[in-house]
Amino acid sequence: MLVSLLFPQVSRPLRCLVQDLHRCGGGLRGQKRAGCPRRGLQTTWATYSSDVTPVFTRALAFGDKIAIVDQNGEHTYRDLLGQSLCLSQEICRALECSSRDLKEERISFLCPNDASYVVAQWASWMSGGIAVPLYKKHPVQELEYVIQDSQSALVIAAEEYVGKIAPSAEKLGVPVLPLLRSHSGGSASHAAVEEGPLATCSSWKDRGAMIIYTSGTMGRPKGVLSTHENVQAVVSAGFPLQKELKV
């Protein structure tokens, strides 16, 4: 259940990433999208506490350890964090949000089963948005439905999926932000980490984290909203079983 919530359809390296990060710390319809607030979030790195915090806030504790190995190579925790920071900056520029807090605007993303999925998810959270993962094997009509129903303000698409999703996004009036393939060790992403202006919220507990859509066997798929507290609870509950099974 942990993997289906955080990283649907992904492989063992991403599950290991969640396990390592865990060791360091402990109805959609009718809702309106909130606007971008005038005041920014605090810009400090989170440290271990019992409070609810997204996993990216603890990534630097693992630094240059390998987090993911995919078809593009090895990715350290620092790589993932730096790439996510860079993408977060692009998200806020695209949506003209100088405060770097989107106040739960929805961010849809379409990525393959590799490090780009984690980067898109983390960047959405860093921007104060709610991540709405799109499934790459769904037909265009289904993807279009999710983007529209979730009231997404932006669509992030890995470069190989831009052509698939761009016409639907244009039809809906939603901008598309291409996510170019980034290799580990990029100087830009490392510079972003060194600068350290990571926006973090005073309380993540009740903030929306993800919207996952049901299979739609009893009608049209429905978006199910999970808060950061929900996500952390699933991670905490699922870790002992994963450890026992040596996943």
Rank of each mutant, 00 (worst) to 15 (best):
N113G: 10
P178Y: 08
P37M: 13
V174Q: 06
G73S: 12
V119D: 00
S116A: 08
I165V: 12
I156V: 15
D114N: 12
Y135D: 04
G219V: 13
V155S: 01
P139Q: 04
D149H: 10
M210C: 09
R93F: 05
T214A: 02
K164G: 07
D101F: 10
S226W: 07
L177H: 02
R181I: 06
G35A: 11
P178R: 03
N113A: 15
S50Q: 13
C36R: 07
L177I: 14
P139R: 05
S127M: 05
L134G: 02
P175W: 06
K243H: 01
S236K: 08
R33W: 10
L41W: 06
E194C: 05
T47N: 11
T53M: 04
D70P: 07
E96G: 04
L80D: 04
C111L: 14
V247S: 07
L17S: 03
S50M: 11
C111E: 08
V247A: 06
C92G: 11
A153F: 02
V146M: 09
H138M: 11
S236F: 05
G163A: 11
S226Y: 08
G219I: 14
W125R: 01
L241K: 01
A131V: 02
K171A: 14
R23E: 15
K171Q: 12
V234P: 06
V162N: 01
L41T: 03
I165W: 00
S236Q: 13
L180F: 11
E194A: 15
N230Q: 07
L81Y: 06
V234L: 09
F109M: 06
D206W: 15
L245F: 15
G238Q: 06
L21I: 04
S152D: 13
G173V: 08
G30W: 14
Y213G: 02
S11M: 10
C16E: 10
T214L: 03
R78N: 09
L172P: 03
L87H: 02
S152W: 00
G216N: 12
L87A: 08
C16V: 10
V176S: 00
I147V: 13
V18D: 00
M126Y: 00
K246H: 10
I147T: 05
V155P: 02
P221T: 07
L14P: 01
G173Y: 08
T227K: 04
T43S: 07
K137R: 09
F56Q: 03
L5M: 12
T227M: 02
S152N: 06
P112L: 02
S152L: 06
H190F: 12
P175Q: 09
S108D: 13
Y48P: 00
K243L: 10
P112V: 03
C36I: 10
Y48F: 15
G35F: 06
Q9H: 15
Q121V: 05
Q242F: 09
